[in-house]
Simulated scan of single mutants.
Amino acid sequence: MAGINIAISQHVLEPYLDCSVQYAILNTIFNKAFVPMDLPEDSKLEPSYIQYYRNQCTAAFTRHKNSLTLIITTHEDILAIIEQLKDLRLTREQIKDHLRSRIAIQPEYREKLICEAIDLGVRLWLMIDVGEIIQTLVPGQRPIKWEQGYLQPLLHATFTPSIEIHERVKLDRIFTIYNLERIAGLHIFWTSNLADHLRLISDNTKVAIFHHASFLEHHRTNNMFPPGFVEETLRTLALLLPSHNKISRKWFQIQQRKFILDSSAADHGDLSTEERQIDNFVFWHDRLVILKQVFDEAEPSTIRQWWCDRRRRVQWYTFWVAATVLALTIFFGVIQSIEGGLQAYKAFNPT
């Protein structure tokens, strides 16, 4: 089997993945030839993706009460489906025909399990939520339905360049994920669904960020994605997680340890002024425009946000000068009140 260099006989429901199985998974997903000695170079890829792989498998098998083992018993079975998905000549129906020969149960239930197995393969290979995944949905998420035909045209149509919002926005350097949280008050939802990247959810109180940069790096030449799509997605990470912004980077490191994020998400440099022009983004254009509008329209509601919000310098200085004058007025007023009280006390108690 292409892409699988070692036997993968470990049962899919075993709680731990052997090291050899992990490398076989990575080699198949990314058409690579990783070996254990590559660990120092590619260690950023392993923790975040392998956790995603395990979570997806657990959710799929739990959803069907482990009956999915009628089709998928070992990790090799999963990777075999992914290899078929890579063949652009195969339609969904042809892949289903191959799987039908492996399961002898009632046709109605068989078809449901086969569809789940194929959709699981797509999710593991491309990190895109496809199929019935109700248990893992987040507010605002729209799973992709692949019911027939070829997979590549569906993905190209899903991620087609689209510019429907023509409002001009300036993607200045203050426009970072860190400032989206501390200034605009948005909650950052770290997603493993590429289709949710930059999506505002929960009544515009959260923004989903796809953090698997290493995954994207290894998929640069994957023609399942439209030309330029992967590169632009990586540039959105460089825009929102600038490498040379020490405060932003330190904040992300805390997030990375807390949520087991792909640490390379903040390793893609800084965009120049020319590169930051909104016209340079065609796949994520509209979501960036909406996100920037939410950021610009957000008003500080806490003292911390007032202190951090330097978007309008004159307003910031005016507010803090007024706040300082008010604080000093109150302070000296309290001092005078205390002094007056002491004087009154002395007047009635001279000794």
Rank of each mutant, 00 (worst) to 15 (best):
K206E: 15
N280H: 14
A213G: 07
F30C: 14
Q343F: 08
E46M: 15
T28M: 08
D262C: 06
V325A: 12
Q336V: 04
E274R: 11
F175K: 01
Q253A: 08
M1V: 06
S243Q: 14
I8S: 04
M127S: 15
V138C: 09
S67A: 06
P15M: 02
H212R: 14
F175G: 00
I114G: 02
L154R: 00
A195Y: 09
E299D: 12
H212Q: 15
E116D: 10
T176S: 06
E167F: 01
A265W: 01
D42H: 13
W251I: 00
E93N: 05
V122D: 03
Y109C: 08
G121H: 09
R89P: 04
I71R: 07
T233N: 09
F34R: 01
I338F: 07
I78A: 08
P107D: 15
D196S: 08
H244S: 11
A195F: 08
T91V: 10
D296A: 08
V207G: 02
I105H: 02
I330M: 03
L240A: 10
W320C: 00
L126S: 13
N245Y: 05
E108Y: 10
Q148E: 13
N179V: 07
L200G: 10
T62L: 11
L237W: 05
H219N: 00
D196N: 15
R54K: 13
Q293A: 09
Q56V: 01
C19S: 15
L216K: 14
I82G: 06
D87Y: 06
R168E: 12
V230P: 04
N5P: 02
L90I: 07
F34M: 03
R304D: 14
W251F: 02
E167N: 03
I78E: 09
V207F: 13
F348A: 01
R173D: 10
F259I: 03
V122A: 07
L154V: 14
E274P: 00
L126W: 08
I209K: 06
A104T: 13
I247E: 14
E93A: 13
R312E: 14
I6R: 02
